[in-house]
Design a binder for these strands. Structure first.
Lengths: 236, 236
DNA sequence: CGGCATCCGTGACGATACTG
DNA sequence: CAGTATCGTCACGGATGCCG
């Protein structure tokens, strides 16, 4: 029945904290449930609606659609229609949306201790380990793409490119990070080096409990590749 | 239809994302509405229930009580009963809770551009400006307490103490920050220097649009005090 | 008076069904 | 494949009441 709903109040009503505070303003934008996890997904590259829904188990279809609409309106994501061959559209982060990487990194570092326990109900995706790993790969001097192989799957990380880990205090204040992806899901188109490790080692690296050099020496990381980046990873 | 009716799980029911991901785990803890803003308040020092309720306009009494209970249970805050003279109890952050400072700082930096507009419905508290200001004061070499005077009120910041801004990439990975407060609401017990500025300048400093030296030279910051810290602030 | 607990209306959320 | 429609449930916001 055409019950006359308020026509304009569709999604216009966004609940705000109404505080003149930078943190509160951020939470007005990204404080809703699922929003930051959608950003986490899109940090790994452009994704289709169905991909997002598959990698965010538990989110309902309408909430996902609503979030994407809100995020598009607030300038966090853009929706791009792919050329005819693939009649689909993908969502990708804007530069503004990509600027949330330091927030996600800080959350990931703080939440890392909670990963000590792996509950049977937990979903897992390989690229979720990319963010913690970024800090461990941050000190590399050579630039290139590292392909990471875990038991859970693979992803690739672009390292050495000016500011990788970001958020830092010392370096230049993040101006133009561009929309450039720092990491991506799946294998790399062209990898300068390949590493294989398990999730546990990956997390230990991210927390700083283990250094890259130690892990390589112990054989807990297997490095392959013959470029300068691979050599640096081997500690040569 | 299989109903998953949880019987009598009164307040134990906490909604989890059920993902083996550090970011998702963090959001399981602090992703609920108001939680991070309560942390923001407590970063300025121990607070009573009524103080929290006063500085978080819009939060309902039961939600505040519920959050505090949850946060106490998850080890973010502790409740301490004050000695007889003041028959009250205060909430304060644990070390774990204090570790959220980098998260708040990242959110504050990302959300700073949204403060360009100051809406008439916005509440304001002076100590909300402390977090953005931390980054601007981060490079100081002398240690001490800076008392900050804004039109909206005053607060004080402890600077130069090893890691002030925190979260950084270069420096030591944050181990023991102790429960030590980095800043606090109201005037300082003992201030090594005093600065007076307005909120706009404070925000510009936090965003790096303006350096401390420039602002002092322009007279947009008035520095008083005679110790080495005050001298450094003056650019001497 | 500070520190909540209770009640209630609204809206956000989660699951499923359905459609272009 | 990419959402929209519908519905039940729960969390949230506001007000009030209780109790030390």
């Amino acid at each position: 029945m055409p019950r006359q709903q308020q026509p304009a109040t569709r999604s216009a009503r966004r609940r705000s904290y109404d505080q003149f505070c930078a943190t509160a303003r951020s939470l007005d934008s990204v404080g809703d449930r699922w929003t930051l996890l959608i950003v986490r997904e899109l940090l790994a590259g452009p994704r289709r609606y169905t991909d997002l829904h598959a990698d965010l188990p538990g989110v309902s279809t309408d909430v996902l659609a609503s979030r994407l609409k809100d995020m598009e309106q607030s300038g966090l994501v853009t929706r791009r229609r792919l050329p005819p061959p693939a009649a689909a559209s993908v969502y990708e982060l804007t530069e503004r949306g990509h600027g949330l990487l330091p927030v996600l990194a800080a959350l990931a570092e703080w939440g890392a201790p909670a990963l000590a326990e792996r509950r049977p109900t937990d979903a897992v995706r390989a690229h979720w380990f990319a963010l913690p790993l970024l800090r461990a790969l941050d000190g590399l001097t050579h630039e290139g793409v590292v392909e990471v192989h875990l038991d859970e799957g693979e992803f690739h990380v672009h390292v050495g490119g000016a500011m990788a880990g970001a958020g830092g205090g010392a370096g230049g204040r993040g101006s133009a990070m561009a929309g450039a992806a720092v990491y991506g899901d799946g294998p790399a188109a062209h990898a300068d080096a390949r590493i294989a490790l398990d999730a546990e080692v990956c997390l230990a690296l991210g927390q700083g409990e283990l250094t890259l050099a130690e892990a390589v020496e112990d054989g807990r990381i297997e490095v392959s590749g013959d470029g300068p980046l691979a050599a640096e990873l081997r500690g040569e």
